[in-house]
Every structure is written in structure tokens, then in C-alpha cells.
Amino acid sequence: MSTADTPKRSMRTPLGRVRSLGAAHSGTSDFWRQRITAVAMTLLMIPVLVIIMMLLGRNQAGAAQILSSLPVALILLLFIIASAWHMKIGMQVVIEDYVHNEKLKLISIMLNNFFSIAVALASTYAILKLSSGV
């Protein structure tokens, strides 16, 4: 395909045009972050399961005591941040694949962001509140 007869010639190389862009207009950053968060959650899975086992069958006072300990709070915070980020990216991929109406797609992506951020913030606030003991 020749570009010699096109009126406006760009000085940008083909690589320069696609770098950091692509169909999602945001390049490969989501692809990479989806994998970082996936690996993080996989590494954290055993500690998280141990924490949940420790909490099973305890009442609120017992659960609050365990959740307020520093290592438990840190592990859960890391896991929740990775989860919220991962699920936001994953759901966006699903939306982009199946929702073809442009307006509906943008609204869905926006709601997806709201939901994921709300999940992350509500959980984080709860853990910090338990840690501060108020």
C-alpha cells in the first residue's frame, strides 16, 4: 500500500503510530496490569485462605481482633486492591467484547469503574477502621 498519493503525509513511522495505542486507545498497560494483579493474588491466595479459616466460626469481637492485626490487615489490603484492579480490567474486556452500542458501552465502562472503586474503598475503609480500633 503506497502512501505517496495521499495529500497529507505523516512523518510518524508505522511503529510510532501504534506504540502505546491499539484498539483500546490505551496500549498494553491494562494487559500488563491484569497479569501483575493476577500473579499478586495467586501469591497471596494461601495467606488469604489461612486468614479466612482463622475467622470462621468466630463472633464479631473475635473476628475484629484478628482483622486488626498488622500482617492480616496488610495481606487483605494488598489482596483487595489487586482484586478490584483485576476485576475492573476483566469486566472492561467483557464489556468491550459484547456491548457494541457506543453510548451503552461508555456507560457500562463508567459503572464498572464506579463499582470496582466502591468495592476497593469500602473494604479498605473497613480494614483501616478495624485496625485503628475505633
Binding site: Q60, A63, A64, L67, L76, I80, V119, A122, S123, Y125, A126, I127, K129, L130
Partner: peptide
């Protein structure tokens, strides 16, 4: 469910 559980604990 996870959020409900953590918020309830707090």
C-alpha cells in the same frame, strides 16, 4: 459478599 462481610465486621 466480601464487602458486606468486612463492613459488617467493622
Amino acid at each position: 459478599l466480601l464487602v458486606w462481610w468486612l463492613v459488617a465486621a467493622a
